[in-house]
Design a protein around this nucleic acid. Structure first.
Lengths: 297, 297
DNA sequence: ATCAATGATACCTAAAAAGTATGGATTGAT
DNA sequence: ATCAATCCATACTTTTTAGGTATCATTGAT
């Protein structure tokens, strides 16, 4: 059995006339006659009653017609689905995320991706670095986002962009009147530091102070940005955060850029399996690589 | 797209090795390689990752594999269903029946047919002669059973068998002591006659009396056998009925064969459309033609 | 370094589909 | 009644496509 038989059969069943059906199939009439005969031989029953006025479906033919329509449409769907899957337009994208990136970059990236590939189902997982790497290896994750990722042979770490750091402080703080602030100006300020896990973002902040030959006065260590900014809002002290955090509006908290050249920035990297040839990953990376962060006021 | 591609694809997806898959398909390896390449070209995406250790399905391949299984199994089902329909093993059999034949012949015939063709759905319709012919023409009926059917050009009337007539009388009747009864012995008995519709079975009964140069004493005309036998049970009179009626046991009613040579009998005929080439009709006629009536004690 | 296994390619053969010409049967119009 | 038109079937040829053989390139294991 071949689909050609079914296609010819369906056309003949529609035209009920060999010559017209053959014309529609862009073949001549004799081959069509023969193909239908062969189909009938294969099935062991007549599919059409022939007369000099045309043909008519037998009961077996009517039965086959229903099935043939089903089969041919399923073949069409399968072709389309396979092609789309091959182009990464259908499937599953599992994204591992972490703290501050979720505040603006990742959602924007995903939104852009979803617009281009609406049939890809996206699932987000809040995970730590280690969990992400583990999940990538076990193929539970397509891609992860993080910072300070240790080098692993089977994992590609690709910088998506560098994000400037800002200083979060209370609006009543004298420095809040400045448009931008130098690190040297805050070396003696009470500092809120995060995250607790090392190595991590906290090390970058510490490095800023070391560069100024200063020792930061850490008043509190917390696990995540949100808590950190909440403490700023309560007047605990100031905090150095990625610019994305400035989307987090809490009462009394203002964000000021750091005055330096170059402006201190931290890397946002994405991680994926080196041998992953998934078209969805490729498609997403395409979007991610073209992504340029933008921030609210 | 042809099914060959899908068959080759599925086999390769199972073996994940061109040479082994080709062996299983009884072809050599290069044609398989080419067919898979062509399939990939047609779909516009890779279906397998190749390496020197074998092949592996891509995501598109995995997607296609599911669809291919569905399609191939549907093709198998369709072939089977078409063949069965062609042989009359699947479908619908609409049977028109009438009065006394339903008492034993038709159910036995249908039972036999159902055993041979369990997938044919049978529907019964109680219909008059005229309704049966009408229904046959409109294809609402596959076959009808009746007696005294008028000849119609487009309807075949085929005698299934001849059924002997019996005399139904009350057990207290003096003739009940006889093992069999001659018509001459009942010419003066009060007679219950059915059906009312003419021409019909009643005419056959009348003919029996005419043959004896007698005029029957009709005490009651009724529409159907059951009523007729009920009247016999109540002592209204006697009744001539087809032997099938003797399956109808009512209090005080006994049935006696008619003593004559040949024993008077009436035809049971079946009716069907002359141009009906339905394999189910053919299959049922096969059963009906081989059918020989048998009666209870 | 060598060998075995695997998929790819080049080239040829065989099978199958399509095309051309034509026949036979039936129907409808003249 | 005849003839033309229509329709499906058949015989034969050409074209296309699948399949076969031989061989290569790559790679991973010994």
């Amino acid at each position: 059995m071949e689909l050609r038989y079914l296609r010819y059969f369906v056309t003949l069943a529609e035209e009920l006339n060999f010559s017209r059906a053959a014309a529609r199939l862009h073949i001549s009439q004799p081959p069509l006659t023969r193909q239908i005969q062969q189909l009938e031989d294969e099935l062991g029953c007549r599919l059409f009653f022939r007369s000099t006025r045309g043909v008519e479906l037998t009961e077996a033919g009517q039965s086959l017609l229903e099935d043939a329509h089903r089969i041919l449409s399923l073949v069409g769907v399968a072709k389309e689905r396979t092609s789309k899957t091959g182009r990464g337009q259908i499937g599953q994208l599992d994204v591992g995320i972490f703290g501050s990136a979720i505040l603006c970059h990742i959602p924007r990236m995903l939104f852009q991706f979803r617009t281009l590939f609406p049939e890809v189902e996206i699932t987000l997982y809040q995970q730590t670095k280690a969990e992400q790497i583990q999940a990538l290896r076990e193929r539970r994750l397509t891609i992860g986002f993080n910072r300070h990722v240790p080098v692993e042979p089977d994992i590609v770490i690709e910088t998506v962009f560098f994000e400037p750091l800002v200083i979060a402080l209370h609006s009543k703080h004298p420095l809040a009147r400045h448009k931008s602030i130098r690190i040297a100006e805050i070396v003696n300020e009470p500092l809120i530091l995060y995250p607790r896990t090392r190595p991590g973002f906290a090390d970058d902040v510490m490095a800023l102070f070391v560069k100024e030959c200063a020792q930061p006065k850490i008043v509190q260590e917390v696990t995540d940005v949100v808590t950190s900014i909440a403490l700023v809002s309560s007047g605990f002290g100031i905090c150095v955060a990625p610019q994305a955090a400035s989307n987090l509006k809490l009462p009394g908290v203002v964000y000021r850029p750091i005055k330096a050249d170059p402006v201190p920035a931290i890397e946002l990297a994405c991680l994926y399996r080196r041998e992953d040839e998934s078209p969805i990953l490729a498609a997403f990376l395409d979007v991610a690589r073209k992504f340029r962060p933008s921030y609210g006021d």
